[in-house]
Design a protein around this nucleic acid. Structure first.
Lengths: 150, 150
DNA sequence: TTTATTATTGTATCATTGTATCATTGAATG
DNA sequence: CATTCAATGATACAATGATACAATAATAAA
C-alpha cells in the first residue's frame, strides 16, 4: 500500500476531492502506481490528509467511475488494469483463446455439443446487432487487476 | 468434488456471495450438479476464487436456507434434491445463452469485436475435432451419493 | 475393537473496508 | 438578512476478511 504523497491546498477554490482525483490520475500517468496496486483505505488516506474519509471516498468513487481504479466494499481499492494499449496483441489473443476454451468446456459440461455452443454464440451476436465501437466503449470489463493484492 | 467453473466479477455491484449463490443455482438447475454431489469445501472454493472463505460460507448458508444444498459441519456440503426434478430443456438453454453472453462480454472487454470472438471459437472447435456425443455422457448422477444425514 | 489424537469441515464473532444517508458549514446570490 | 447549494462531516450500514471455535472424519495407539 504505497504512500501517495498527496499535497492538498486547503486555501484553493478547487474542492479537496477534486485535488485527490487529479493527483491520483497524475500518479498513475507517471507510472508511480501500477495495475493491481492497492491504494490506501479511505480512512487511512483521510487521516493522513486530515480530512473526512467521505471526502476520500468521493474521490475514489469518481476515479472508479472513470475506470481508473476499482473500489470493492470490504476489500479495498486497487489500480485497475490499463485499458488495452499495454497488453500485447499476442497476449490479448491468448486470453481470447482461453476464454473460448472456457466457454466450450462449460457448454460441454452441460451436455451441449460444440455445434450447439457455436450456434448459441452466433444467435447472440446476430440478435444484438448494434456492436459498440471498441474505441467509444469505456472499457467495461477486463477486470483482470484488483482481485489479487499483489 | 466437481470444479464449479464459477466466474466472479469483482467490479460488479452485486456482492461476491450473491454471484456464487446465483451460479450454483444455475449449475443445479441445468443439471451440471446432481443430488448427492459434494461441493468444494468453503476453503477450496475460496482459494480458487481468491476470496475469503467466509464469503463462500455465506453463499453456502444462503443456498442451505433455500434447501438447495445441505451444509454439514465437519462433513462438507452436498447438493440436495432439486426442487424441480425435471431440469427443463429451457433452463439448460438459458444457461448456455448466459455463458455465451459472458464470453462475448469478456471478448469485448479485451477490445475484440464480436466477429473476432466468433472466429476464435470456430478456430478452437475445428482444431479439437473429437467431440464427445452428449448421449454418451452417463448421468453421473445421484446414484450412490454420500448419504445425507439431513 | 476401542480409545485417543489429529486433520478437516463448517460456524461464530469481530475487525476492516467501502457505501448510503443525512446534518452541518460556508460562500454565493437574491 | 434569507435562501440556496455545493463541499464536507457524522453516523449507521453492508460486504469482506481474520481469527478462534465446534463438529465430524480420519488415523494412530492401546
Amino acid at each position: 500500500m504505497p504512500d501517495l504523497h498527496i499535497q492538498l491546498d486547503f486555501g484553493s477554490d478547487v474542492p479537496i476531492y477534486n485535488q485527490i482525483v487529479a493527483q491520483v490520475q497524475e500518479l498513475v500517468l507517471m507510472g508511480a502506481l501500477h495495475p493491481g496496486d492497492q491504494l490506501p483505505t479511505v480512512r487511512q488516506l483521510a487521516a493522513e490528509l486530515r480530512v473526512n474519509f467521505n471526502t476520500v471516498a468521493r474521490a475514489y468513487r469518481i476515479l472508479d467511475e472513470s475506470r481508473l481504479i476499482s473500489t470493492q466494499q470490504g476489500r479495498g481499492t486497487y489500480i485497475l488494469g490499463t485499458p488495452d494499449p499495454h497488453k500485447s496483441e499476442a497476449a490479448r489473443r491468448r486470453t481470447l483463446e482461453e476464454l473460448a476454451r472456457r466457454y466450450r468446456d462449460s457448454a460441454l459440461g452441460l451436455g451441449f455439443s460444440t455445434s450447439e455452443a457455436l450456434a448459441a454464440l452466433q444467435a447472440l451476436l446476430s440478435t444484438a446487432a448494434e456492436e459498440p465501437s471498441p474505441a467509444e466503449r469505456p472499457n467495461t470489463a477486463a477486470e483482470n487487476g484488483p482481485q489479487e493484492k499483489v
